[in-house]
């Protein structure tokens, strides 16, 4: 039924895709955005094989000329050229933003799942889990980062094995902070989903001789993690934006870079508008991606009437 109607190949999916103008525009914008980022990153890794490192992929003068030639756009030609000049710095900052968000999210997930399970099925561990969650959710993230960076001076004790992976070791401190904090939020979303799995599921697992932990692992979690996806996506989206707080402990991510440029050029409005658009693009990508994942892992027959 539902399994049979799910498109299997890229061709089928393209053929099935909603061909509305809005969608085409969104896909085109996404392709342009990620194309630019990937080319910029690869260019930097290859030491400037495509364009000199630190230079825009397209010359600002070319863009300015093109804008000036179009009536109505001529007025913003100088602004367009300025934005193009920003692109190398933005791409570089976005790399760290993406890496910090991605690594923290994944590491946080592996902490969040045991926290959620302990909260629902544990006795003493439920209190530990609750304490951890409330502490991490109840105090400002920025304060947590300050404690790790200024208070505990963790940047000085990054293990040699991973030291030097990033331009500054403080990136690891940011990843640790977002992992610990994000785990608390993720645990709350996953806990809700675990609680929504019918008790009969675990009873049935026990009845065929699975232990309680095995029943949770083989029966409850595969369902709960699916149910958690829509709300869990919130945490993904929040983390993309919260990662800008890493700038306050000197991590040169997207926000930090943009803030620097704004201070140097005094063009606060232009810089922060572009910065906002960057975060919006990242967030839209994340939520669209998770929508795909949700559809992909949906259990056939369940919620088939739930149209997106």
């Amino acid at each position: 039924m539902a399994g049979a109607t799910r498109p299997r190949t890229v061709g089928e999916r393209v053929a099935d895709a909603d061909p509305s103008a809005g969608r085409i525009l969104l896909v085109a914008a996404g392709a342009l955005f990620w194309g630019w980022l990937l080319v910029s990153w690869v260019n930097r890794w290859l030491g400037g094989a495509i364009a000199p490192v630190g230079e825009p992929l397209v010359a600002p003068e070319t863009v300015e000329g093109a804008f000036a030639a179009v009536p109505g756009l001529a007025a913003v030609a100088a602004d367009a050229a300025f934005v193009v000049e920003l692109t190398p710095v933005l791409a570089q900052g976005t790399w760290l933003t993406v890496v910090i968000t991605g690594v923290s999210l994944v590491c946080g997930f592996f902490i969040a799942v045991p926290l959620a399970v302990a909260r629902v099925y544990g006795r003493f561990s439920a209190w530990l889990s609750l304490g951890y969650t409330e502490l991490l959710r109840g105090t400002p993230l920025l304060a947590q980062l300050f404690v790790l960076y200024y208070g505990l001076n963790l940047a000085a004790s990054v293990p040699a094995a991973v030291s030097g992976v990033f331009p500054r070791d403080v990136v690891w401190v940011a990843i640790l902070g977002f992992t610990l904090n994000g785990a608390a939020y993720q645990a709350e979303y996953i806990r809700g989903a675990v609680e929504s799995v019918d008790d009969g599921q675990i009873t049935a697992g026990r009845a065929i001789g699975l232990s309680k932990l095995e029943s949770i692992y083989y029966v409850v979690l595969p369902q709960a993690l699916r149910y958690a996806i829509p709300s869990w996506t919130n945490e993904f989206v929040y983390l993309i934006k919260y990662s800008s707080l890493a700038g306050f402990i000197t991590v040169p991510e997207l926000y930090y870079r943009a803030d620097q440029v704004a201070t140097e050029t005094f063009r606060y409005t232009a810089v922060f508008l572009v910065l906002g658009a960057m975060y919006l693009a990242l967030v839209l990508t994340a939520s669209k991606f998770m929508e795909r994942v949700d559809d992909r892992v949906a259990i056939p027959g369940l919620g088939v009437d739930r149209e997106r």
Binding site: D198, G200, Q201, T203, A204, G205, R206, A207, I208, G209, L210, S211, V219, P222, Q223, R226, I299, L302
Partner: peptide, 20 residues
């Protein structure tokens, strides 16, 4: 108990099939 339950099959009123 896990060993005991291996030898004793159970069928539930609400089926309790593993939904996934």
């Amino acid at each position: 108990v896990d060993e005991l339950r291996r030898d004793v099959g159970m069928v539930f009123q609400s089926f309790n099939l593993f939904a996934h």
